[in-house]
Design a protein around this nucleic acid. Structure first.
Lengths: 175, 175
DNA sequence: TGCTAATATTTCGAAATCGAAGTCTGCCGA
DNA sequence: TCGGCAGACTTCGATTTCGAAATATTAGCA
């Protein structure tokens, strides 16, 4: 370092910021092979979230509302309970009540009592909700493709394979 | 499919839910090699966020406050402006003002006017803030190591390498 | 059956967040 | 130098979220 004053570095690029982050975590006691992966995943997610947010304003949807739509879409038409939606969206049950109120008003989802269990409520996507989902996925896919443009097909495949190994272990850790 | 009624599947495992999610996005018009990666990253992040939230309650810290602490830690003692913190945390500048008020009260950060530019404010971590950061990283690293336990050292390295390629391209897409 | 504990949702008040002004300072061209 | 414009932060009112309490129903058990 010599007597040189610490350079006023401009941490402009994402890659640079990422590397500094890893170095910081490692210096604080984190394991390097762990921090490289975790930090990279977090960086990527943050950027993706920014882009999703931009696209969602076009659809006049909040990220939370989008989470509800995707969860219902994944259920393939099978109705889902509010508590499951709250869980999937990492959000308090009471917040979900409010969200569903608004989304119902707007005609994106439909609430109905569960005939088999009167403590439960079933939520499902309306036709309008489905249309919105399909349109949004198509748009998002454009951005997401750009994000992965730097990888060849086989690299994407390798990346997905590795991530899938991690995901397969995820449940076991919840205890 | 045969006339068999759709099985009432219990999408219990994370891997199963992941696969259904990918299938749903592909059916809606997404590209498969893209959706495998993006969905996996999102799944992983959601789980990580859940665990972080749990650890943070022990420290009596909100996820947002933690984001401030990490950003200041990454700056290695160099003060950072509130607007940069807001940007890094994907949050409105006005929200950051409120957060910093609280964190200052609590003694985690320190605000001071920038001597070179009186429109700016400089924020830095106090000693207490640093201690909290180091302690939290050590704890988080335990969980994160568990998450990646299913990968060998070289697999982790390969995973990190691939993610770094993606990150390197991130800035170019911001236009 | 009757009683208690557990579960699912909603209601309610407090706290966090947002976006739109508002205030102050620095920058730049006339 | 002056005037206006742009940038940084804060203030303010409205919206969203949270956690705890309230309500209603089911499940388990004596």
């Amino acid at each position: 370092m010599d007597g040189m004053p610490t350079a006023k570095r401009r941490p402009s690029s994402a890659k640079q910021r990422y590397q500094e982050a890893v170095a910081t975590y490692v210096a604080a006691g984190g394991d390097e092979s762990v921090q490289r992966v975790i930090t990279a995943v977090n960086s990527l997610t943050r950027k993706l979230d920014q882009w999703y947010a931009r696209q969602l304003v076009d659809l006049d949807l909040s990220p939370g509302e989008w989470a509800v739509v995707t969860e219902l879409a994944k259920a393939e038409g099978q109705p889902v309970t509010p508590s499951r939606l709250a869980d999937a969206g990492n959000v308090a049950a009471s917040s979900m009540t409010h969200r569903l109120d608004k989304m119902t008003e707007r005609g994106l989802v439909r609430r109905s009592p569960d005939p088999d269990n009167r403590t439960r409520v079933l939520v499902e996507l309306t036709d309008e909700g489905w249309q919105l989902f399909v349109a949004a996925v198509r748009e998002a896919n454009v951005v997401e493709s750009d994000v992965l443009a730097g990888l060849t097909k086989s690299q994407r495949s390798a990346l997905a394979d590795l991530l899938e190994v991690v995901i397969a272990d995820l449940d076991a850790l919840d205890t």
